[in-house]
């Protein structure tokens, strides 16, 4: 197990390097640069600014400069939000994104697995159809519809929560963004759990457990749920990485100081250093969480356990 873990972590380094390289060149291949805007810059000024950011050097040289800098832990300055370095922006936004993301995924896990299991145990009943129907709607309604709706209903009409904003980070400002983030995940996890639970409930080892005369509750809680959770766990890796790195929609609508906005805004602004910064954060998160998932998998799946 340990050697496997070390091997996995070793592979992560070249993976990250490839991600950085591909992102760097893809960003530069995209037409338009950070200073192409409604108000075009006079040529001499554009020259000055490009020189200030090393953008006037040949691409390959820029790349080696960049790699050198990140090896020293320097992610450079943001081009569009000049008073902050990329590291400062990410450090300022990451806590909010992670906090919301983790809470959302936690909620999603509890409710998703709960609803999914409940529906699977009453397969093809009215309850099953109702839960799955709601889940389907949950997946189908995009965030940019759900978030303003929540803000309108709870903030404006019922006036029980702020419509948006962050205040000084008080809990009431976080409730709606967490719910909005969690809803599609609840729905997805519920459907995933139900599907695999139904399958597991029909498998041989469950039939054996039942044949031994175990109570249904024990069959489900001790045996079935472990097997049923496997697809959920593998989904959780990338899902957690995605949710924890913020969501541009949620952040824009609720005014959350997260890093999700940068994925879109920095790319549209061609804020090269910031794009690279968030790409690296995201890649690291994916790699780490997938690694964690694999570890948990080994614990949950008896087949893998016996192999190792």
């Amino acid at each position: 197990m340990l050697s496997y873990a070390i091997r996995r972590l070793m592979i992560a380094i070249p993976t990250l390097f490839i991600v950085i390289t591909v992102a760097f060149f893809m960003m530069r291949i995209a037409p338009g640069g950070p200073f192409d805007q409604e108000r075009a810059l006079p040529p001499e000024i554009e020259k000055n600014i490009k020189a200030a950011y090393d953008l006037d050097k040949p691409l390959l040289e820029q790349y080696t400069i960049y790699i050198g800098k990140i090896l020293r832990g320097d992610f450079g300055p943001s081009i569009k939000i000049r008073d902050f370095s990329v590291a400062e922006l990410i450090m300022a936004g990451a806590p909010a994104s992670m906090q919301l993301g983790l809470s959302a995924i936690f909620l999603a896990l509890i409710f998703g697995v709960g609803f999914g299991t409940y529906a699977a145990l009453r397969q093809n009943s009215a309850v099953d159809f109702a839960v799955m129907g709601v889940a389907m709607v949950g997946i189908a309604i995009p965030n940019f519809v759900m978030a303003p709706l929540l803000s309108l209903v709870f903030g404006l009409y019922l006036s029980i929560l702020p419509t948006a904003g962050w205040g000084d980070g008080e809990i009431q400002y976080k409730i709606l963004p967490i719910i909005a983030l969690a809803l599609p995940q609840v729905a997805y996890i519920a459907r995933l759990t139900r599907g695999s639970m139904v399958e597991v409930l029909h498998s041989n080892y469950i039939r054996t457990a039942r044949a031994k005369g175990l109570r249904e509750k024990l069959v489900v809680n001790r045996h079935a749920i472990r097997g049923a959770l496997l697809p959920v766990v593998s989904y959780l890796g990338p899902a957690t990485a995605a949710v924890m790195t913020g969501s541009v929609v949620i952040e824009t609508i609720f005014g959350v100081p997260g890093i999700g906005t940068y994925f879109v805004k920095a790319a549209l602004n061609r804020d090269y250093p910031l794009v690279m910064g968030v790409v690296i954060v995201y890649a690291v998160m994916i790699i780490l969480l997938n690694f964690l998932v694999d570890m948990v998998y080994g614990l949950l799946d008896p087949k893998l356990k016996s192999r190792s």
């Binding site: 303003p148 404006l156 006036s159 904003g165 824009t252 005014g255």
Partner: peptide
């Protein structure tokens, strides 16, 4: 100064007196 690039969200906050 609150940053709001989403006009509807900004308008809702105004309507809510925020």
């Amino acid at each position: 100064y609150y940053t709001y690039e989403d006009r509807t969200a900004m308008q809702n906050r105004f309507r809510a007196g925020e």
